[in-house]
């Protein structure tokens, strides 16, 4: 009887193990790496996503802050602000594929949804550069004082919306004419920006404690959603409902229902300077860089708490892994 009991326990344990492996293979691509940009020491940390061990720390350029994938998700593009170049990585392994020089002071960046434009935001130099794709031919340098920070695109690719940190404004750039179309005053020190499928812009108001929700058709702030002090970045969860907001000063991440424009659940304490995020395809795991603590947090969204911290380089900023959630737009 006892032997049979042990056999059943062993069988159950084996099934659980196989089940968890199947689960892992669904969640992760084999050999998948997490790529973290250490803006303060000009390196990328390549982390094995399954074991959460740093495999390598590799020099990549000066001040790599933000990253984006090409629209076909085949390349990961890293913007080296002080090296004035873009570095293209294999999004799965983190291997460097090529380098594109003479992109001046790229801080934040993005491709228009129609694939026609590449926009590079130069925070330090008060301007936004528009490049034609696929040649990366510079089409216009648009002076945009003061301190352009993050960029988002309208679904029809007509406009690029840029937050201006030091003048507390939001500017819209007409991509066809490459001219500033309009700008409006918004909250103090606006930073991260994201456009919802409903056509509303969500902007982290870093100098205060909320997200401004802006209707670009009306050109006005239609709601303020309080998320926490130092509201900074806005990142979709890919489930058609929620967006995550990181709050640098409070050191929290807050889930926001972007249709109902309301906060969902309690803030998750992550760490001071929490900034960019990446969400797993099933939405259960979020990786977030914690700038002032030189580490990246792995957050279990079911339990709503960080389950592991991984020390990385100085002032980690952008973070990415291949099997991420859909980018709701």
């Amino acid at each position: 009887m006892k032997t049979r009991f042990i056999s059943i326990v062993r069988l159950a344990a084996s099934l659980a193990l196989i089940g968890s492996l199947i689960n892992v293979s669904h969640a992760l691509k084999p050999g998948e790496r997490v790529i973290v940009l250490n803006s303060g020491d000009g390196t990328v940390s390549i982390i094995d996503r399954a074991t959460r061990k740093v495999m390598e720390t590799r020099p990549v350029g000066k001040e790599p802050h933000h990253l984006v994938t090409t629209l076909d998700d085949s390349e990961l593009v890293i913007a080296n602000a002080a090296s004035n170049d873009l570095v293209f990585l294999d999004p799965l392994s983190g291997e460097v594929k090529r380098r594109l020089p003479r992109i001046i002071d790229p801080y934040q960046l993005g491709y228009s949804p129609d694939g026609k434009w590449f926009v590079s935001v130069s925070l330090r130099l008060d301007r936004v550069d528009v490049y034609a794709m696929p040649s990366y031919e510079l089409k216009a340098r648009i002076p945009l004082a003061k301190t352009p920070s993050h960029v988002a695109f309208s679904a029809d690719s007509k406009f690029a919306y840029v937050t201006l940190q030091d003048s507390d404004e939001l500017a819209a750039i007409d991509l066809a004419t490459q001219k500033e179309a309009w700008r409006i005053k918004i909250g103090k020190t606006p930073a991260g920006i994201w456009m919802s499928p409903q056509g509303l812009l969500f902007v982290g108001i870093m100098g205060r404690d909320h997200v401004d929700v802006i209707d670009p058709a009306k050109r006005e702030v239609i709601k303020k959603i309080v998320t926490g002090k130092g509201a900074h970045n806005v990142f979709p969860m890919g489930n058609g409902e929620h967006v995550l907001v990181s709050n640098r000063v409070d050191g929290t991440i807050v889930k926001v229902d972007y249709k109902n424009l309301s906060v969902v659940g309690k803030p998750i304490k992550v760490g001071s300077g929490v900034d960019c995020m990446e969400v797993s395809a099933d939405g259960k795991e979020v990786w977030a860089t914690v700038r002032w603590e030189a580490r990246v947090a792995v957050i279990d969204m079911t339990g709503a708490k960080p389950i592991e911290y991984i020390p990385v380089g100085r002032s980690p900023h952008g973070v990415y892994f291949k099997s991420h959630a859909k980018r709701d737009r």
């Binding site: 803006s39 301190t147 940190q165 030091d166 103090k188 020190t189 870093m206 100098g207 002090k229 130092g230 640098r248 000063v249 001071s272 300077g273 002032w292 002032s315």
Partner: peptide, 14 residues
């Protein structure tokens, strides 16, 4: 950081 936040200087964080 608390000083920067209270003085409206969050843009100078880096």
């Amino acid at each position: 950081q608390p000083l920067l936040f209270s003085l409206d200087l969050m843009s100078w964080s880096e």
